[in-house]
Design a protein around this nucleic acid. Structure first.
Lengths: 131, 131
DNA sequence: TGATTGTTTGATGATTCTATCATTTAAGAA
DNA sequence: TTCTTAAATGATAGAATCATCAAACAATCA
């Protein structure tokens, strides 16, 4: 009784791959977690304190999402003194986010054109904002 | 009242990008939808009938997930006669799945080693199964 | 030791998602 | 028209997830 694994997470071998994969995406399916992973993508490691000030979240709220990310093995953590540092578990996590962004740009762009139905010649650069 | 958009989906411009991105992953976060997208990744287009027989799902169940995929703009559909054909909305969807698989292989492999704690020299090739 | 800062855990109600049933729309054939 | 097949929709109960709060734990310093 000393495993920190509680939920189904996805370290469940023997499960069909598409289920494991769906689980991976489930782990990514929250704005707070995306934000954290983006921050971790930009630096080799980030402390919880820094994540807190960068996101403005309540500590317990952030911690809960960090725990989810840990459970899904998307990040690893390491305590040094009073602070806890988090790192991406694999560089492919960052790549996944990058591909997602590319896809989003394509889809949003297509949708935008769709909405405007070939009316405006140029919609004032793209909708690149925050992050 | 003739828009087919009902849920929050993600064509919501003006939302911060990390939220839109989380939404994208939410759209992917179900085994049935992953399976469908994998099938669509392997062929230029697939009919609902073929998806039904390939997955063994109940028609309305599949249809509901197809509707989610449509709402999230991950697929497009096209009716020809009696049958409805589905296509990936963007090749990056397939790439996203490919990166996810790579990540999964890394993480699962690492986890496995972790579980075996450096005991067995070679765990009989990788856990590549179904799909 | 006790106080302090940093981080995690547990419990709760509210919200969202899933699977299944029954119903409905659409296209084509008889 | 009426029948059959293809697919989508609507409603619903049960499961999962989220945000919030209070409490616990860990490491350092006085």
């Amino acid at each position: 009784m000393e495993q920190e694994n509680q939920g189904p997470a996805f370290a469940d071998f023997r499960a069909p791959l598409y289920e494991v994969k769906a689980n991976l995406f489930k782990g990514l399916a929250h704005p707070v977690r995306i934000r954290v992973l983006e921050l971790l993508s930009a630096a080799p490691e980030v402390s919880v304190s820094d994540l807190l000030s960068a996101t403005g979240l309540e500590a317990s709220h952030l911690s809960q999402h960090l725990s989810v990310l840990r459970r899904y093995r998307l990040v690893t953590s390491d305590r040094r003194g009073l602070q806890q540092f988090y790192t991406l578990a694999d560089p492919l996590v960052a790549e996944l986010l990058a591909v997602a962004r590319g896809l989003l740009e394509n889809v949003l762009h297509a949708t935008k054109e769709d909405l405007e139905t070939a009316t405006v010649p140029r919609p004032s650069s793209t909708t690149r904002d925050t992050l």
